[in-house]
């Protein structure tokens, strides 16, 4: 028998850590989704699909900008000392994912905007005629477009990985403490974005392509999740305990039902049937994937805070 008692009773710390509630998982999910959209859009620019007039690379940047801003606002809401938020940009701290994340976000915006400028909104064109000139300027330079695509892919990749590193850098929380987490978040971001594009794509070819891509991402995601869990299960006691939070612990029901089953397996089956033309494409599967991705972030953030080295520490 081991009895542990502590007299500490700090808010957000005891009985178990809960410094982050919905804002951070939402922010991480959005970060991943935007990362995925940047990569997809960037790839389309790079692969010259932008020549198709209904290519999603024309609509994605605006959506990314809006969604990303929601994410940033969500992050801002989480800060306890909001008036000091500018302090983030008085220093660049290499050891702090939070710091380079802040800087990545600063770079992400202009890169998405560059993509966005290829097809700005009508009212912007009316209000700011110079913008139209820029748009024309870009369209005249295929190499530049390809480069914008490359930069979007690179920064998208960094953004996606960063959302995982933010957590995986925390050696203090056994569940998070795995570099696979970044891959998982990147893959999950990609699958979410692919699902999203699959849902909104006007272009039939793109829809097919992304449904297929999404299927690969989902399979990959399953594999990465397995890797993550196996990794934890083969480390120390506390890591095993952390993995079990998801496998058969307090978070298992949500994890198995919403992430694995409804978030990956069911949509995967639906989309496999769709790409093989057994059934019609339906927004049901992509919606499930997206919700699954969101819930994944929630579970990882919550369960990670729950996981610790010792009951009383």
């Amino acid at each position: 028998m081991l009895e542990l008692t502590t007299t500490r009773h700090n808010p957000m710390i005891d009985p178990s850590l809960h410094v982050w509630s919905w804002e951070i998982p939402l922010y991480l999910f959005i970060g991943g989704l935007v990362a995925g959209m940047m990569i997809i859009s960037g790839y389309f620019l790079f692969s010259k699909r932008y020549k198709e007039i209904d290519c999603v690379c024309y609509s994605l940047p605006l959506i990314s900008l809006i969604v990303l801003s929601i994410g940033m606002f969500s992050l801002f809401l989480d800060l306890e000392h909001k008036l000091f938020v500018w302090r983030l940009y008085t220093t660049l701290k290499i050891s702090s994912p939070m710091s380079w994340g802040a800087w990545i976000l600063i770079l992400v915006y202009p890169v998405i905007i560059a993509n966005f400028l290829m097809n700005p909104l009508k009212f912007i064109e009316v209000k700011f005629p110079q913008i139209t000139k820029l748009t024309t300027f870009i369209h005249q330079r295929p190499r530049l477009i390809q480069n914008i695509g490359i930069v979007n892919m690179i920064l998208g990749g960094m953004l996606g990985i960063y959302t995982g590193v933010l957590l995986s850098a925390m050696g203090s929380r056994p569940l998070w403490n795995s570099s696979i987490l970044s891959i998982l978040f990147l893959v999950s971001g990609l699958s979410g974005a692919a699902a999203f594009v699959h849902m909104i794509a006007q272009n039939v070819k793109e829809r097919e392509l992304l449904a297929k891509a999404d299927n690969s991402f989902l399979i990959l995601e399953l594999f990465v999740i397995m890797l993550l869990l196996v990794g934890l299960l083969t480390t120390s006691k506390v890591h095993i305990a952390a993995a079990r939070l998801l496998l058969d612990g307090p978070f298992a029901a949500q994890f198995w039902v919403f992430v694995i089953f409804l978030g990956i397996i069911v949509p995967l089956i639906i989309q496999l049937l769709a790409v093989n033309h057994k059934i019609k494409h339906t927004p049901v599967a992509p919606v499930m994937v997206i919700i699954g991705g969101l819930i994944l972030r929630f579970i990882i953030v919550y369960a990670g805070q729950f996981s610790k080295y010792l009951n009383v520490l």
Binding site: I13, L79, E80, S172
Partner: peptide, 21 residues
């Protein structure tokens, strides 16, 4: 105190949960 934005990363990063807001 004047540099802290209250992001709570340090709270989560401390294996001893020694910090609070």
């Amino acid at each position: 105190h004047d540099k802290c934005i209250g992001c709570k990363a340090c709270l989560a990063a401390c294996p001893y949960s020694a910090r609070f807001i």
